[in-house]
Design a protein around this nucleic acid. Structure first.
Lengths: 340, 340
DNA sequence: TTGTATGCGTTATCAC
DNA sequence: GTGATAACGCATACAA
């Protein structure tokens, strides 16, 4: 089932068939064009994309590497991207790293082997090497969720530091002074930016940072659960916790539930990154909401526009603090922290 | 950056380079092999998968077509599959149909053009044509979530009818007699099987079916919301609702919240397909839990085993009814339905 | 309007 | 042990 088959059947040459099927202008006389199309249709001819890719140098495939496609944040981007890709006849190759840098490297290789035209990646570290290697092959890289030092490509981000700042400001203005913070593995710039937002937020409120209140976790629900456990076991446990992603915040919620800790009475909670069901639980969870549709749209547009002029621009989008019910003033306003 | 480049650089032929890099036995003398490998490493050579695919006829890519990759059910399958694929150096091409049959057709075509070796698809209809077309190209089809009439391939399913039966039996044994049912678009066999489970469940309890209590919806949260609205607006509204998927059940929950309907006091709810957070809301939602890890594992294994001997086997896995708090006896046990 | 020829990067078969 | 050589299916520059 190749062009040759059709050519033989219609008594023309492969080139003519190719031109007709590719809708080249004046590819053939109306009659022959018709004959060819009819034959292709009847035989159920499906062009071989690999062969075309080899010939043209355009694979018509885009790659997407994220931590976890099950995270609604990434799933939305994937879906949006893929829809816009379909219109152009592109395929989407996806890979989950689970925040594993080694896996990321291997997947970048797979993507490179498949000669994806553009590779959208949510990096798991600040290491530029494997990305640079892919770029050297002519693969266009598009970063999401975090920048990578030294990789000068377009990237779509949110203002991580400012976002967390908003959360911390909110808590301090509520009267909290013992604020716990759960970060991911701080290999990633965005996670460090978020952490900086926390530190500066405390400083702005005249609160001295306490390293015990900052837990380095791993972006997973279980990690959040454990971090909450460590935090609440402290001599002076926090009256509020900020988690640097949704899964870890969920872990905190689960820990609170399991241990009879009332939110927000005994513990306030803010999540970076919202979740659909955060307004269905009791209490509804306050979260930093990312403009996820806008991000998906932007990514799609950037992927479609092969406008390789600019040297790489960071698109920084704002988040909004969606106030719900998981934050409240601390039980013992500001001074009597010692009694814990 | 091709085999030729390396060949030139090391002063051997492309064939030798190819053999060495493919780790063919006795490909070359130890020294030359070493030279070649070193050169490849130094140049950052990445093989062109398209070219290899064209030559060998094996694309090393698997396709996955599902309704919505954001659905944890599908996301888990995707993740599991992809991990097992990575080990074999395969890529995963994904597509979301949003339950749109037309999109499904187009995506099957895209997958076919890319000559995926295996195509895993959660069908959106009972139409076998596009699938047969792909099979004719030598693409192996693997069905998940639902069978398709006339497509005799391996498929991984759960026992839909029995599952819903369990839910309905549970409700009738609680004393419910007005049980609403929200189905998806009944184009899909699995959805029809579930509906049959409902019908037979009622019959087994000696309850006469009421067509008004069955709403044909669309598998979305909004659809579930609207279906709940229609159901509760009935002259004799149901005292319990069974939704044939998780999103629609969530829609029902949302409707109940928005309208002050207490679950389970005023309305019992059971969802087909569980969700991580169903045990975090109040009330915790009773659901039919699919053996999702087992399904993912099975799919991965089937995809890996290119054992094309059997003519196509349905693997039917059992679900379990996870009893939580969203079901309770109806307020007015069995008789006083009329007062609504 | 149509056909011929060439090459994309690989792999595989055969010689040497 | 190594190297020509052909072929995979397609697109295109060029010739007719």
């Amino acid at each position: 089932m190749t062009l040759q088959t059709i050519a033989d059947l219609t008594g023309v040459s492969v080139s003519t068939v190719s031109r007709v099927l590719n809708k080249v202008d004046n590819a053939a006389s109306p009659e022959t064009a018709h004959r060819i199309e009819a034959a292709a249709e009847r035989l159920g001819y499906v062009p071989n994309a690999q062969a075309a890719a080899l010939r043209t140098g355009a694979s018509k495939v885009v790659g997407l590497i994220v931590a976890d496609i099950a995270n609604p944040f990434f799933a939305t981007i994937a879906t949006t991207l893929e829809q816009s890709l379909l219109e152009r006849g592109y395929g989407l190759l996806v890979a989950n790293t689970g925040n594993n840098t080694d896996l990321e490297r291997r997947y970048v290789t797979t993507m490179a082997q498949n000669r994806v035209e553009t590779l959208v990646v949510a990096p798991t570290s600040n290491d530029p090497r494997h990305l640079d290697e892919a770029r050297r092959l002519g693969i266009r890289i598009l970063l999401i969720d975090s920048r990578v030092d030294g990789v000068e490509v377009d990237c779509v981000l949110v203002d991580d530091e400012t976002s967390i700042r908003k959360a911390v400001d909110h808590l301090t203005s509520l009267g909290h002074r013992q604020i716990g913070y759960i970060s991911g593995h701080q290999r990633i710039l965005s996670d460090l930016d978020r952490l900086r937002g926390y530190t500066r937020g405390l400083a702005a409120a005249g609160i001295e940072g306490d390293s015990e209140l900052v837990i380095r976790s791993d972006f997973t629900e279980l990690g959040g659960f454990r971090a909450a456990a460590r935090l609440m076991a402290l001599a002076e446990p926090p009256t509020a916790i900020v988690a640097s992603n949704n899964f870890m915040a969920t872990g905190v919620l689960r820990y609170a539930r399991a241990n009879g800790i009332c939110i927000p009475e005994a513990l306030s909670l803010v999540s970076f990154d919202d979740l659909d069901w955060y307004d269905l639980v009791t209490p509804r969870i306050t979260a930093l909401t990312q403009p996820i549709e806008a991000i998906g749209k932007l990514v799609s547009d950037l992927v479609s526009n092969t406008d390789d002029t600019a040297p790489g621009v960071p698109y920084v989008l704002p988040t909004s603090l969606t106030l719900r019910d998981s934050t409240a003033p601390p039980r013992h306003p500001t001074s009597s922290d010692k009694e814990a």
